[in-house]
Design a protein around this nucleic acid. Structure first.
Lengths: 115, 115
DNA sequence: ATAATATATGTTCATATATTCATATGTTTA
DNA sequence: TAAACATATGAATATATGAACATATATTAT
């Protein structure tokens, strides 16, 4: 009996089994794109800060120690990916987290990082 | 009474409050670095595939439709970040997930992507 | 209407990252 | 020991991405 090797170069049944259970490519890309949002420290800082309180852009820049422009650029990404929502109050635009699911993901990551 | 604006340009108490509750920069960087691992579709495919079965490099390449070299390069990253472990069996090296915590994070992300 | 303020955006630059190709390393078999 | 196989790795290239700077847009106050 051979040692689980079916062909001279791959284990065909394992490959087929796993292939059949793979999620489709589009969903995988959506998923990695989603994690890409959290793959930048400025964006994570923004999201973490917003989990404490809604804030205007200038406040956010102060809190995370970054420029208004840099923060605004990242906020656009967070807006486009539906992670934050905005509410204009006069001249200022207040940003807040769209839902608390986001905080769950951050905390999950923190658990791993903190061991 | 002013409309919650303390200074002529920022809301100082909100800024201070949030600042006091921020996690430190190093931890934020660790966190974004951690998410960076999941921010690539090849790596997510590898991790998802390994959640179904341990596999050798060649099998993995077949399953995810990528080259041996590309997979090997990504596997090194996953090894270095302690997400996968290896076990040599003769000529082949079998990779598997180091712990199932990783799958939890992927599933959490999938929930968000799938709405 | 004009000035002042708050935010957004286009462009450029530097850097990071993934893939490919060629080759090296390590393991088994003849 | 030589050949065959499985995996790893270095170098080169292409692409993606974040920050900075300058400027545009939108809102309010005078």
């Amino acid at each position: 009996m051979s040692n689980s090797i079916e062909h001279d170069y791959i284990h065909e049944n394992v490959v087929n089994l796993v292939k059949d259970n793979m999620i489709n490519d589009e969903k995988i890309c959506d998923l990695s794109d989603f994690f890409k949002i959290f793959a930048d420290s400025t964006r994570v800082k923004i999201l973490f800060a917003l989990s404490k309180s809604e804030m205007c852009v200038y406040d956010l820049a102060k809190v995370i120690g970054s420029s208004q422009s840099a923060v605004s650029h990242q906020l656009r990404i967070l807006r486009n990916t539906k992670l934050v929502k905005t509410a204009r109050k006069g001249k200022e635009i207040f940003y807040s987290l769209l839902d608390n699911h986001i905080l769950t993901i951050i905390n999950q990551g923190l658990e791993h990082v903190e061991e």
